[in-house]
């Protein structure tokens, strides 16, 4: 076959144009993924934390660590112990995130209590806003997640989170955080921390489920989110939160 350079370029060009049009069409009209029993549009997840029920046992921290293989020394959830004097200046400690429990506190001259912390799964999350590559996002059911295939490890989100809930995973070098046990809640289980909490201080809630006790709870209890002035749309509601909690 006698093929001139001109013919080759012409044929190559036609092929390229046809292929790209075809590929674009396929992407636009591509078959939707198979429907499943879990519908993201029917849920809007959050959590309520009852400060007065937390006993600082650290069950949630250990459960989270085991469920999600959180690397040692890093925490997706942790418990802080506040000791607040009359000047309302808190002394806060959280030895190793409370994974081994707290040393006994015998001080009676201060108000002391435990505050479990985790990602607040903000609806208007600062960490999502700063991500330059779309690796972190609020899912349609209200969970802030990280796509580790997209994450560059630039750490912007870690700095942006007002609650200190993110870390750089030492092995993958990507941002990592609480997923609200997305693999569990999408199959009808509660989160590992809620499952392991012996006092019911944490409750996973679904704001879009009209049967969820959260609606009753929010009508009858005084609740607060952490750092409300940051306007992050935090969805972890704390009952009886002290003003000294940061």
């Amino acid at each position: 076959m006698d093929l001139s350079r001109r013919d080759l370029f012409a044929a190559g060009g036609k092929l390229l144009i046809l292929a790209s049009v075809g590929a674009t069409l396929e992407q636009i009209t591509g078959a939707a993924p198979p429907s499943e029993s879990y519908n993201v549009a029917e849920h809007w997840w959050g959590m309520i934390v009852d400060i007065d029920k937390c006993i600082g046992c650290g069950n949630c921290v250990r459960a989270c660590s085991k469920e999600n293989q959180v690397p040692q020394g890093y925490f997706r959830t942790w418990v802080e112990r506040y000791q607040v004097g009359e000047d309302q200046q808190p002394h806060v400690d959280s030895p190793n995130g409370d994974i081994d429990g707290f040393p006994a506190d015998t001080r009676t001259d201060v108000k002391s209590f435990f505050v479990p912390k985790l990602c607040n799964h903000c609806a208007d999350s600062p960490c999502v806003q700063v991500c330059p590559v779309g690796a972190t996002f609020v899912s349609p059911d209200g969970v802030v997640l990280v796509d580790k295939n997209y994450c560059l490890g630039c750490r912007y989100c870690i700095q942006a989170c007002p609650y200190g809930c993110r870390y750089l995973h030492p092995e993958t070098n990507t941002a990592d955080k609480c997923t609200l046990c997305y693999h569990r809640i999408t199959q009808g289980l509660t989160t590992a921390c809620c499952e392991a909490c012996p006092t019911g201080a944490r409750q996973l809630v679904d704001f879009k489920n009209p049967q969820d006790p959260v609606h009753e709870y929010l009508r009858h209890n005084k609740v607060q989110v952490l750092k409300p002035y940051m306007a992050t749309g935090a969805k972890v509601y704390y009952k009886d939160l002290d003003g000294s909690v940061r």
Binding site: N68, H183, L189
Partner: peptide
Amino acid sequence: IPKAFGKYGHYDAAALDRIRQHPVAFAG
């Protein structure tokens, strides 16, 4: 660009399914 990119927002919607693949440790 992954097929599911942009389905819900500026991210790969298939990441949701990948995150859901994580094995469960607490049976419930």
